[in-house]
Design a binder for these strands. Structure first.
Lengths: 326, 326
DNA sequence: GATGAAATCGTCTACGTAAACGTTTTTACT
DNA sequence: AGTAAAAACGTTTACGTAGACGATTTCATC
């Protein structure tokens, strides 16, 4: 039953509620004998402290929220899993909020959860600019940015060196003799999309290659991937960079349907965004995101900040490896 | 800031806290003029109600926990996504707990969250028997079982007609002339594993086919899949049933590595456990799990039970379609 | 056994909110 | 204007817990 309070335990054990509370929380010394009395009563009554009352009193909820744009993307699923493991060790729980890449859902949830809802946020934001979300997040609540970093946000961040990874991958293709290299971006407006695209453009330019007609903006919506693919094929691209894992796998499937072989007929660069290997990726060169490391680090960062608000800002940049297809 | 209470708003607006509370919750009529006064004050002070205090007072947390064995499995990720969507419409939030197929983690979390932690549970349990978990869950708290149904549990459930789907798939293979049909199970002890295996055995037996040496017990651990695969190949199987999506994809990759073509050299039956199509599954016959439907239904069930504890038990059995490779 | 220090424990308040209960003001109708 | 009914609003309490503060008991030492 849940209607058993600390008060009932106190009565049953013949002590005060203060003693019971201190036994539970180990907050002052209690005689061995008394402690056992209390512990026995707790067991007998099957008492467990009321979480809500506790949070109310202490102001701590032992709860952190991870705001992700897309739960069913394996990238974020893995991230969630890693964060959960780190968090759980501290007896914290994880609230998962799926914004579905919607600014409005992000705002609503931040606002709702900020005031006493959770102790801190892990945020993979849909915003590219802090100004838009500034009002919603109270200053006192810890936030750690994961994977995406809206410009100007005064928070710890754990992100990936996207620029460098894409730049290397373009150079790799060029070294292999490709000159017509197509690029399919992810959702515009997201910080990672911009970084990756910029790297592609810079690398092409540095090698005096044109990007004219080679850049397509996409989402992982299947129809759009298909359309973008056909346009780039029509442009006679000999290599394609597809800027996230879900679209890359889709590109594989679509090329397969068209009877175009990878990597013999066209070379593909995709992403490895999850801990589990995916069938189909063995034929691509891959940019391997440090998902596991990112999840753990982000969780750790938040825990540290929960314990001490005054540590200086930390921006962590994790390397993404480029793995050429053999 | 978060240190703004209903009290401050009341003072600022020159009314009582009761009025503020009633404006916020729409719980009694307030003069238009006063209401605006209050609303303006709320806005000016950027007040939002303290969630913790509110939960404490009302006993409602607007929070439900979804206990899953493996977040990074796309099956559960999709389930989570669907549940979250249904839940969000009711202004409820979703706590995701990853048990990693561990009984102990399941127990710990159930116990911790039950007393005031959440309003209800969605549970994809690692237990196959209710007796083992009975003590931990208070009687008054609503639980809906998802995908797996521990024997004897007195809860609403939303599960899949596993038996029927596997039975049809075996019949399909037999009709095509296969007699040596291998079967790789999922984790033993899980309810779905047992149902599926039983169907395979019954269907084989009904057709006078032996299963001797054709059954391998597995997990999605890559090395184990590989070992099981080799053993079944050595048994000269012409068709394989692999009883979940992750293992099926792995089997594909391993067969690919060994130069064995699917479905020309060996026929494969796998699972489609997610809303997104996966590369590799186009070469298998598939048992399509009704993931989306299951998530929505389960969420709905729980919401209904939160509103009314007294409705009779409902056990929902969803059909899984068998889709032969063309 | 007297003393002070240390150990042990109890009383009571406060947290922010919702709502029961009570009071005042407004309205409708004679 | 007088009345009752209805509308509007304020005062107060209670929820379960943690911990400040204060009270009592135990203990070591003379």
């Amino acid at each position: 039953m849940s209607n058993i309070s600390i008060c009932d335990v106190a009565k049953h054990a013949g002590v005060s509620i203060a003693t019971v509370s201190h036994v539970i929380n180990n907050t002052r010394s209690v005689k061995e004998e008394t402690r056992n009395l209390v512990l026995n009563s707790i067991q007998e009554l099957n008492y467990s402290p009321n979480t809500a009352a506790r949070s109310f009193k202490t102001g701590k909820r032992n709860l952190i929220a991870f705001i992700v744009p897309d739960i069913s993307n394996p990238f974020f699923a893995t991230l969630i899993e890693e964060v959960e493991m780190v968090i759980a060790k501290e007896a914290l729980h994880l609230l998962v909020v799926n914004t579905k890449e919607t600014k409005e859902r992000e705002i609503t949830n931040l606002r709702f959860l900020a005031n006493g809802g959770v102790d801190g946020f892990l945020l993979a934001s849909t915003f590219d600019n802090y100004a838009e979300m500034e009002d919603v997040i109270p200053k006192h609540i810890p936030v750690v940015l994961v994977d995406r970093r809206p410009a100007g946000a005064p928070y710890d961040s754990v992100i990936v060196a996207n620029y460098q990874a894409v730049y290397s991958s373009v150079e790799y293709l060029i070294r292999k003799g490709h000159t017509r290299i197509g690029y399919i971006t992810g959702l515009p407006r997201i910080t990672t999309t911009a970084e990756r695209l910029e790297a592609y453009q810079d690398a092409m330019e540095a090698n005096n290659l044109s990007t004219e007609g080679f850049i397509r903006t996409g989402t992982s919506m299947s129809a759009l991937v298909s359309e973008n693919l056909d346009i780039l094929l029509a442009q006679d691209c000999s290599a394609l960079i597809v800027s996230n894992n879900m679209m890359a796998i889709q590109a594989m499937m679509l090329l397969d349907q068209r009877g175009i072989r990878v990597p013999q007929d066209i070379e593909l660069i995709g992403y490895m965004d999850s801990a589990q290997p995916q069938y189909g990726t063995q034929y691509m060169s891959l940019i391997r995101q440090p998902v596991v490391d990112m999840g753990r680090t982000a969780g750790q960062r938040l825990i540290e900040r929960l314990k001490n608000q005054d540590i200086p800002l930390r921006e962590t940049l994790l390397r993404a490896d480029f793995i050429p297809v053999h």
